[in-house]
């Protein structure tokens, strides 16, 4: 059982890390602000989500598990809001959709 949970952690955290790397590559390579934001928010949503999911079986207590989920929710909230604000600022600056 422990082995199975450990394997799940390794797979989920690795997948989360993959999304972070992919998001970073997108941030560096994509041509305009909106597509860069798209890459970034994918990393936030899926990357952090998968890493938290992978870490959950390793939590030693219920409180720690709840805190992990709390971190995930707060990152979601911050990421979603900031990307909205940045996208609006970018749209205002360009005067049109990019």
């Amino acid at each position: 059982m422990t082995l199975l949970l450990d394997a799940f952690t390794i797979v989920a955290v690795s997948a989360g890390t993959f999304f972070f790397v992919a998001g970073t590559v997108g941030l560096l390579r994509f041509p305009d602000t909106l597509s860069r934001l798209h890459a970034l928010t994918k990393a936030d949503n899926l990357g952090v989500g998968l890493i938290v999911l992978g870490l959950l079986p390793q939590a030693t207590s219920l409180g720690m598990g709840i805190r992990l989920i709390g971190v995930w929710l707060l990152v979601q909230l911050a990421g979603a809001t900031v990307s909205q604000l940045l996208a609006r600022a970018a749209a205002r600056r360009n005067g049109a959709r990019t």
Partner: peptide, 15 residues
Amino acid sequence: TDSALTFLAKLLPPI
């Protein structure tokens, strides 16, 4: 006009 900012400013302070 930024409803996203208003939303965050209403949701986050209690936490």
